[in-house]
Amino acid sequence: MHLYATVAASGFRRHATYRVATAAGVFTNTVFGFITAYTYIALWHERPHLGGYDQSMALTYVWIGQALFATSSLMGGGFQDELIERVRSGDIAVDLHRPADLQAWWLAADLGRAGYQLLARGAVPMACGALAFDLALPASPATWAFFLLSVALGVLVSFALRYLVVLSVFWLMDGTGIVAVSGLSTLFFSGMLLPLNAFPGDLSAIALVLPWSALLQVPADILLGRHTGGALAAALAFQAAWAVLLLGAGRLLQSAATRKVVVQGG
């Protein structure tokens, strides 16, 4: 356990060294936040209660999206490229024979990264949004606490999905396609383009039960106070269930990949 805490801490520190890059990222998130916010104002002006949100909730949703964009890797990426390169170069064989568990190792590093990015790239855009627009942010500390818990679960699901993508490279010749497809799916089905409850009918119903909704839609709805009591527990359980299922799938695939490496030597 101590080992993984160290790995997480180093993941945090590693991203913390890029100060200028972080500032640039914050700037970009804020610019995109403004552009999206105005388009949502126009949209909610036409349909005042679209998706069950009023305008200030919709605007809050925009800034939650920008705040979690890097944290929950809503466009994919993060550790993916690095690990895929290790798979392609065959260095992964060394990693698989280390005493540390590969999945736990990279999960710890990714949690460290997410922690840093929540602080560094989440807070400032959210504050900018709150200054420029009338946001529906909750006053209750408990709501914020559940939101953070939900974000953490979202990061787990995000990691689990990206880890599966990396493992698929053991069987595919080239990871470019699947990385791109998974990145686009994440962008679309997380609700980064438009809240999933504002999607038309059936598409909305489908998108809300897919794992990607755990990344942004569920934490946002918790912060917006749309889930309370039993519904809140159900929402968190939904995220946890996807996390367990996908991390479990990752474990199975990882052992298959290990066998493949042992048999074929990488």
């Binding site: 388009t39 949209l43 036409e46 349909r47 679309f188 438009l194 038309p200």
Partner: peptide
């Protein structure tokens, strides 16, 4: 463009 199409699935006009 898909995002724009999604918006227009809910409204007829934007701005």
């Amino acid at each position: 463009f898909l995002a724009i199409l999604l918006m227009f699935s809910q409204v007829d006009r934007l701005g």
